[in-house]
Design a protein around this nucleic acid. Structure first.
Lengths: 159, 159
DNA sequence: TATTGTTATACTCTATAACTATA
DNA sequence: TATAGTTATAGAGTATAACAATA
């Protein structure tokens, strides 16, 4: 503090760019936080070549073996038409299977393959580490719980 | 509670779809909240034909008259290349002006037109109403302040 | 008639490279 | 050399319409 120099005086000191008109908007800050967190996710899961939607699809199939494409798509907020390419990719990579269900031959029953199960074990670890990092940034489990509750209020309310 | 019927026994009771593997992830819930808030924004600003980025650009130019394209683009987290079409649109619609600054002829100095200023007054009202609605959903100003602080922690931390 | 998966298509958003004019 | 604006282009993500198979 004792060694700070006087600011330059000659040129008209360019006023700082005023961001507050947007940074103080809930939606704007929500967006920036989400982008930041997704970038961090992508960096951490780059080794697995999995983006958020792909990871989420795998996790949902693991937790709901035999579920239909439309169920997983709906849970992810993805249109069933757009889910086809995603699930094709996971099948091509040998991570999931489409099987013929007995009761409804229109639908496909989704399952992890052995390789998918094996990968999922690693993904669970990576995801737990990532979540722990978020908790650390937020300042602890209580802060995370607070955030989750506040976000829920924005999601739940219909109008 | 006293009138609950026994669950149907005949068919194998289809277990509820288990979402928790994703809904309990900070990033996932952040994303869903952001999408919800942006949808609400789009609905409210449909009359003005303005999406979040366009509104934010106008607000930043209003708060920083004479700013350069790259300054506004950076503040919005948009590449300068992608900002061109956005600002072209706003200029075509007569909401902003690109003027020649005296000191640096490479850049464009951005200003709201009279029409832009006039529109901005209405947008300020609409945005204030929208923010108030978010506060209501969150449960009051203190809850909003909490959310903003928590989101900041996710944005600030570099690693 | 309605639903599931699928294809095709279009529109937005984003990322990169390269050009120009200026600094 | 570096920066501001621009163009072109390609990749995601998303939305809609239409079709086949099945319910």
């Amino acid at each position: 503090m004792s060694e700070t120099k006087a600011p330059p005086k000659a040129k008209a000191v360019r006023q700082r760019f005023r961001n507050e008109v947007v940074t103080e908007i809930v939606g704007y800050r929500l967006r920036r936080a989400q982008v930041q967190v997704f970038q961090e996710f992508n960096a951490r899961f780059a080794d697995y070549q999995l983006r958020p939607a792909e990871y989420s699809a795998l996790a949902l199939i693991a937790a709901n073996p035999g579920s239909k494409q439309i169920e997983v798509a709906n849970a992810l907020g993805i249109k069933r038409a757009n889910f086809v390419a995603l699930i094709n990719m996971l099948e091509t990579r040998g991570l999931i299977d489409r099987r013929q269900p007995a009761n409804d031959r229109r639908s496909h029953a989704l399952f992890l393959t052995a390789e998918g199960e094996s990968l999922m074990e690693k993904l669970d670890v990576a995801q737990a580490e990532f979540e722990a990092e978020c908790v650390r940034k937020l300042g602890g489990p209580a802060a995370r719980e607070q955030l989750m509750e506040l976000l829920d209020r924005l999601i739940d309310s219909g109008g």
